[in-house]
């Protein structure tokens, strides 16, 4: 075996080891808020007669995704609470005020995952600490994998969807909206781009 061949084999081996190592570890992703392929929405019943939808227009976040071992993945999101938008300025003003989110005192809401458990093919249970209205609680969010892979512009992405229900009172929000409207459902739709 000549020197040239040996060098070639060593390089191939190194590259192979390197890519195995990369696959085994969680990789860094950024949530695609720039391209608005991520949504944090909520819905709450109005008088018990219909569903009212709103969303937070401004937030940012990162993920670590381990494709081989999804339970090794994690997510962190920071939401600008003043960016609440329910398509009605007077209502948004009220929801941002002291009766509800009190965004002057609590300008951000955060979610940091503490664990991810695989529950089935493409589904999982995300557990994490939600801080909302100054109250931090551990919440569980059932999630499912929507899809992922190369995008048409040279990037690499994964997308997930999930939702969970919060009792407003648990977060110190006790304005009376009626008996049918004590809980709000949070709807998360996240697409993340590999860094």
């Amino acid at each position: 075996m000549n020197l040239k061949k040996m060098t070639f084999r060593a390089v191939v081996l190194l590259l192979a080891m390197n890519s195995t190592a990369a696959l085994a570890a969680a990789e860094d992703y950024i949530i695609d808020t720039k391209g608005a392929h991520a949504f944090i929405q909520f819905k709450i019943k109005h008088l018990g007669y219909s569903w009212l939808y709103g969303r937070f227009d401004t937030f940012s976040g990162t993920m670590k995704i381990d494709e081989k071992n999804p339970e090794n993945s994690s997510i962190e999101i920071t939401v600008d609470t003043a960016s609440l938008n329910s398509n009605h300025a007077e209502r948004d003003k009220h929801l941002r005020g002291e009766d509800f989110l009190n965004v002057k005192k609590y300008p951000t809401s955060t979610f940091k995952s503490t664990s991810v458990k695989k529950t089935g093919e493409g589904t999982g249970l995300l557990t994490g600490e939600l801080t909302l209205h100054g109250v931090t609680k551990s919440i569980e969010v059932p999630i499912s994998y929507v899809g992922g892979g190369k995008d048409p512009w040279g990037g690499y992405r994964h997308g997930f969807t999930g939702s969970t229900t919060l009792k407003l009172k648990d977060y110190g929000i006790d304005y009376n909206l009626g008996p049918a409207s004590t809980e709000v459902e949070l709807l998360l739709d996240i697409e993340a781009i590999k860094l």
Binding site: N87, H88, A89
Partner: peptide, 8 residues
């Protein structure tokens, strides 16, 4: 400007 902020 409060009430018309959303175009209403």
């Amino acid at each position: 400007m409060i009430s018309t902020a959303d175009g209403r």
